[in-house]
Simulated scan of single mutants.
Amino acid sequence: MGDHLTDYGPAPGDTTTTNTAPLSIDKPGGDRADRLDRRCAPARGAGEKGWRAPHPNRHHMRMLIREATAEDWPAIWPFFHEIVTAGETFTYPTDLGRDTGRDWWLLPPPNRTVVAVDDAGKVLGTAKMNNNQSGNGSHVASASYMVDPACSGQGVGRALCAYTLEWARAAGFRAMQFNAVVETNAHAVKLYGSLGFEVLGTVPEGFLHPTKGYVGLHVMYRAL
């Protein structure tokens, strides 16, 4: 599981009230679009603490998180390809092809893949969620996220992560586990920590970063 999250929350020490209301989502298998209508704008800063209540003069960020379909793949593929080719955050082959990437990312029920879109329908990011293991380990969920680098700093990654947690709870999972969070992916590590995940352990030199060499892979977990 890898992540490409570059969204920022309020700056450290910011005491502005954040919007922490749970997302309203369908039960697994539902086909109603899931409305995330948080009139919030993310602050630019080093922290990953949440959504800031909007200032009257701030741009109001609106997103719809809905189930992804094959028709969304042409919009997902350009940033999916950019992120995978960069080789900094995912353990996917850097030469992963378009069709194979689609088959790996767009999951059939009972698992789920979603996209976050703006009011104009532009795809801002995507997430897939699934059981982490099969059989007697199938009660623990997992998820992966990709945010279009051109849409960073808008809270897309946080919204997608919160969505997957709500989905996992609704589906009856007992926990969520990320198997391979690259330790140099600081934004993802901070975000997951702010949403209740902890690092259970790190595989030393488990990932070959294209510029930083061999770095660790975190296993991160939180109970639901």
Rank of each mutant, 00 (worst) to 15 (best):
G172V: 13
G9F: 02
G172H: 10
V114R: 08
N185R: 03
Y145H: 13
A68T: 12
C151W: 02
A43I: 08
N136Q: 09
L195A: 06
A46N: 06
P210V: 10
D99K: 13
M129R: 07
T100K: 15
H81W: 03
D34M: 15
V156D: 01
G201R: 14
D95P: 03
F173Q: 10
T202I: 07
H4K: 04
A86E: 14
L107F: 08
L23C: 04
R39W: 08
V114L: 05
F80K: 02
D119G: 15
D118N: 15
A175D: 00
Y221K: 08
I65K: 07
C151H: 11
Y92S: 07
K212Y: 04
E88N: 06
D72N: 12
P56V: 02
F197D: 02
E67H: 14
E166K: 13
E67Q: 11
T100H: 12
P42F: 01
E82F: 12
D119Y: 04
P56Q: 05
R174V: 13
T94Q: 13
V203T: 14
M129Y: 10
Y163F: 15
H218G: 01
A11D: 00
L23A: 14
T202R: 15
G47R: 13
M176I: 14
H60M: 09
P42A: 09
N131R: 14
P74Q: 03
G137S: 07
P110I: 08
D31P: 00
G45E: 01
T15S: 11
V215R: 13
A171P: 03
A141I: 07
G155R: 12
F80G: 01
P108W: 12
A162L: 14
A127Y: 06
S144C: 11
E48Q: 14
V215H: 10
R222W: 05
K49N: 03
R98F: 00
D103G: 11
G157C: 09
V189R: 12
A127W: 05
R112V: 09
Q133T: 11
D26T: 15
G193A: 13
E67M: 02
V123N: 02
L5S: 07
D14E: 12
A127R: 06
D3I: 09
A143W: 07
N132V: 00
A43Q: 05
R174A: 09
W73T: 10
